[in-house]
């Protein structure tokens, strides 16, 4: 075959052809090809069409994605010369998930109110401390309990008889949520405030 003949001197690579990329019918097929910077050479029987993407191992690490912009099927002459030449087009734009950064403006309003000035002035320890104090004050107000710290949290979020019920699910899952959040609220009082 073409690749067996030509590949011996030029070298071949395993590449992945992605047909109908980005659609529900996307299909991936690993094939052998001779890859050059402007073109790739495939066996004439390899199903590759214009618009397909081709993933090629990048010698710098990772994979390089190229687009088959022109596909030329050469099936004339001796069968060992039959091949498909694919000219590479511009690489598709990488699909990068938008980065959502953790910023002060995205925090809960109560946290912003309690910690804003201190945070802006660079008093990080006090800012964090005030934020957790705002949590304690709120839990005390909502639960109408005359307790503080981890004791308050244990009572308010008690999984068996919660004063404030934070579960969003039913049954066993809800019970796990209550216990989990009670531990988080207690931890916030014990370890951080």
């Amino acid at each position: 075959s073409f690749l067996r003949t030509m590949g011996r001197s030029h070298g071949t690579k395993q590449v992945v052809i992605i047909s109908k990329p980005g659609t529900e019918d996307e299909e991936r097929r690993t094939v052998e090809a001779m890859i050059q910077s402007e073109s790739g050479f495939f066996e004439v029987t390899t199903p590759i069409y214009e618009g397909d993407h081709v993933e090629i191992p990048d010698p710098r690490g990772g994979t390089d994605v190229r687009v088959a912009s022109e596909v030329k099927v050469n099936d004339f002459g001796s069968s060992t010369l039959h091949h498909t030449q694919v000219k590479w087009g511009k690489a598709p734009a990488r699909r990068v998930a938008p980065v959502r950064r953790l910023t002060f403006e995205n925090l809960h309003p109560d946290v912003q109110k309690a910690a804003g000035d201190l945070f802006a002035d660079g008093h990080m320890g006090s800012a964090v401390s005030e934020a957790f104090k705002s949590l304690e004050v709120r839990v005390r107000r909502l639960s109408r309990l005359d307790q503080s710290g981890s004791t308050l949290m244990s009572t308010a979020f008690n999984a068996k008889s919660p004063v404030i019920d934070v579960a969003t699910e039913d049954g066993r899952s809800g019970q796990d949520e209550r216990e989990g959040f009670m531990a988080l609220f207690r931890g916030a009082m014990i370890g951080i405030r």
Binding site: L107, H108, V111, V128, F132, R138, A188
Partner: peptide, 26 residues
């Protein structure tokens, strides 16, 4: 360290949001 402080504040924020689910005045 502002980044670390921000992460702690995010934790406090998470707990506040959980209470929001049950607090009618939130």
């Amino acid at each position: 360290d502002p980044q670390q402080a921000l992460e702690y504040l995010a934790f406090a924020s998470l707990l506040h949001r959980r209470i929001d689910l049950t607090d009618p005045s939130a």
